[in-house]
């Protein structure tokens, strides 16, 4: 449970910082930044948190299910804006996927990409 306590602590610290400093980032993301900094600074050792972190990230989708149900409950109330919403959400999602992926590919040296693929396909 040590790992869970550490992860909860960083999450809480992120929320506290968000609330007190009114940062334009959610507490979760601030907590993530603090946690990464703590790992790099060796304040937190990887082996303390690794098992708990793997358990949580392995089931990350589970924690999003309540939000999907919440969003589904609102869909019947969209009404006359349905077409604009559909076009905007679908078009923009695939545009971001395509542009980000393409820019990432173009800015990656090609021989390195092959090396990485060999390294990670195993």
């Amino acid at each position: 449970m040590r790992g869970f306590a550490i992860l909860l602590g960083f999450s809480l610290a992120g929320v506290l910082l968000h609330d007190t400093l009114h940062l334009p980032l959610p507490g979760n993301v601030i907590g993530l930044m603090l946690f990464v900094a703590a790992l790099f600074g060796k304040v937190v050792k990887l082996e303390w948190v690794e098992d708990s972190a793997n358990l949580l990230t392995g089931h990350l989708l589970l924690f999003f299910i309540p939000y999907v149900i919440g969003a589904a409950a609102l869909i019947p109330f969209i009404g006359h804006d349905a077409v604009a919403i559909g076009v905007g959400v679908v078009g923009s999602t695939f545009a971001v996927l395509w542009i980000t992926g393409t820019v990432a590919k173009k800015t990656t040296p090609e021989q390195k990409e092959d090396e990485q693929r060999a390294k990670f396909s195993a």
Binding site: S11, L39, A53, F63
Partner: peptide, 22 residues
């Protein structure tokens, strides 16, 4: 329903922080 499963949405916090490990 979303309000009934506050525990899961709360755990999204530490789960997001846990992404620091990878």
């Amino acid at each position: 329903f979303q309000g009934e499963v506050g525990m899961l949405t709360t755990l999204l916090g530490p789960a997001t922080v846990a992404l620091g490990v990878p």
